[in-house]
Design a binder for these strands. Structure first.
Length: 483
RNA sequence: GCCCCCAUCGUCUAGAGGCCUAGGACACAUCCCUUUCACGGAUGAGACAGGGAUUCGAAUUCCCUUGGGGGUACCA
């Protein structure tokens, strides 16, 4: 079987930060390339000069790299088919457009926006779809010259052959369109710049793209593109259209649903490796049922035939669970290091690195996002602790708690603060000693006085890390504050 | 409106005619562990959108309806 080099691409337009939908498409392309020993290419589609911005190009690079998707050819690293930015390829599009005009597959259209609007209005009134009439197609050289003389700037339209067009989609199966419904569409704008549908075809062909894996929002563009391939006598690639990513309310994922850009998730404290893992699960499922899986393993298991054709809801619950799982599985040094910027919201100087790791170890289990660590560890810092009014009133101020704390301050004075396990044992004895008070109530009083909270890290560890002085001080404060 | 795509638990999905009284994961509930919250463990509840047709037999094939999504630009 002739199996030419597999080449896929991701072609985002830099009109915003890298969207999760684009990231997911990039991921599937990347997986397909890596799985099949192919090439993954990054191309920047910046033909829309108005909306494209350089900072977004940078964001695309950064986001892709952050989630571990490296490309083999691209604007920044070059490659055999450079340049990889559409804005630097305009000459190429012009040549191809010219070819099409010469071969009769395209023609200049001199219609003004106003004239087109009028046609559209009529179509609307007659309740039929607007399909460009194609009247400029028949113009003679003289008429063309006349318009040029008038100072009109033409567009180039592709001459649509009307026919039933079938193509086989790798994920959707056979799809059929009636191209008569489309009409002659613009391939070169009046500013001599290509439209999307034309530029993609030219680039994909020039760059020898073998498989086009993209979102299903492009499915209706496909017949037009196939027709251009045909008109140009180029080989038609394989298509695969992925279901969209939807918001929990099943509408298109947008800003109003919260974060939509990859970097926002990472900034929020999602681990990039957890995030890609989650993305992979949107439309693909591991044959062995093990969903927590690094990219390296997903590559070997990945199979494009197994991609779901259904749109997928972006569910935060599962992302959160995955992220927590990844955090828990990380070696403690690694978490500590990666959480540094959040940890540093507290003044770390009072602790050694070793102690800091103990703190992280003590709180890591209930983290969903790395960023939450800042709050989880806050009571380990400072001489005193903030206790909110409700806890002060309902937990600390009760006579029962006061009694516990008076007793506990005695115990606290003679603990061995180097030994968490020992502290734990003493605490056990203490609970017995405080009977008939319930163990839970006893510990809540102690915990609240020390941490200002009703839940958190193992209390013996808290006591150890707080040390004698602060433990005594905080307990004492909790007692005196209410007298 | 027209065109195209899609349709299994709340969500992501497994399922390619009998293995399905439909499996897994997240979320949810209960219980266990436990000084708290978590973590971990166990159990439970929970779906083939509806209607026809094909077949000995349909979640799986076909048709219709309904619902959802996408497209309908000199945006990409």
């Amino acid at each position: 079987m002739q199996n030419p080099q597999i080449r896929v691409r991701i072609a985002p337009s830099p009109t915003g930060n890298l969207h999760v939908g684009t990231a997911r498409t990039a991921l599937f392309n990347w997986l397909f390339a890596r799985k099949n020993n192919g090439k993954f290419i990054l191309r920047i589609e910046d033909t829309d000069l108005e909306r494209s911005e350089e900072k977004y190009v940078q964001n695309i690079y950064d986001s892709l790299k952050a989630i571990g998707l490296n490309w083999d050819e691209g604007p920044d690293i070059g490659g055999e088919y450079a340049p990889y930015r559409q804005s630097e390829r305009t000459e190429i599009y012009r040549e191809y457009a010219q070819k099409l005009v010469e071969s009769g597959h395209a023609y200049y259209c001199w219609c003004s926006t106003a004239e087109l609007e009028a046609e559209k209005e009529i179509a609307q009134r007659e309740k039929r779809d607007f399909v460009y009439s194609g009247r400029c197609k028949k113009f003679s050289r003289e008429e063309t010259e006349k318009y040029r003389q008038e100072g009109r700037t033409p567009v180039i339209r592709f001459s649509m052959p009307a026919k039933k067009l079938k193509f086989n989609d790798m994920v959707k199966g056979e799809i059929e369109f009636d191209t008569a419904l489309t009409g002659d569409f613009v391939i070169m704008k009046s500013n001599n710049t290509p439209t999307y549908n034309f530029a993609v075809v030219v680039d994909d062909a020039e760059m020898k793209i073998s498989h086009i894996i993209r979102g299903e929002d492009h499915i209706s563009n496909t017949p037009r593109q196939i027709l251009i391939y045909e008109a140009l006598g180029l080989e038609i690639p394989q298509f695969a259209h992925l279901g969209m990513i939807l918001a929990p309310d099943r509408s298109k994922l947008s800003k109003r649903h919260g974060a939509t850009a990859v970097n926002e998730f990472i900034d929020q404290g999602y681990l990039p490796e957890a995030f890609v893992n989650f993305l992979a699960l949107l439309g693909w499922s591991p044959p062995d049922g093990e969903e927590v899986k690094p990219l390296s393993e997903i590559i070997t298991l990945f199979n494009i035939d197994k991609i779901s054709s259904t749109p997928a809801v972006f569910e935060f619950d599962k992302l959160n669970w995955l992220n927590g799982t990844y955090i828990r599985n990380l070696p403690i040094e690694n978490i500590t290091q990666r959480a540094r910027k959040y940890l540093e919201k507290s003044d770390l100087s009072a602790y050694s690195e070793k102690q800091l790791r103990e703190i992280v170890e003590a709180v890591k289990n209930n983290l969903v996002k790395l960023s939450e660590i800042a709050d989880s560890i806050s009571y380990f810092f400072g001489e005193d602790v903030n206790i909110d009014d409700q806890i002060r009133e309902t937990i600390l101020k009760t006579e029962q708690s006061q009694q516990v704390l008076r007793e506990f301050s005695g115990l606290a004075a003679e603990l061995d603060y180097r030994d968490a396990e020992g502290i734990n044992e003493k605490l056990g004895e203490f609970r017995k000693q405080m009977k008939p008070l319930k163990p839970k109530d006893v510990m809540w009083a102690v915990r609240a006085s020390l941490t200002g909270r009703t839940h958190g890290a193992d209390i013996a560890v808290v006591i150890k890390l707080l040390g004698k002085e602060r433990t005594l001080r905080r307990v004492q404060n909790a007692i005196t504050a209410t007298v």
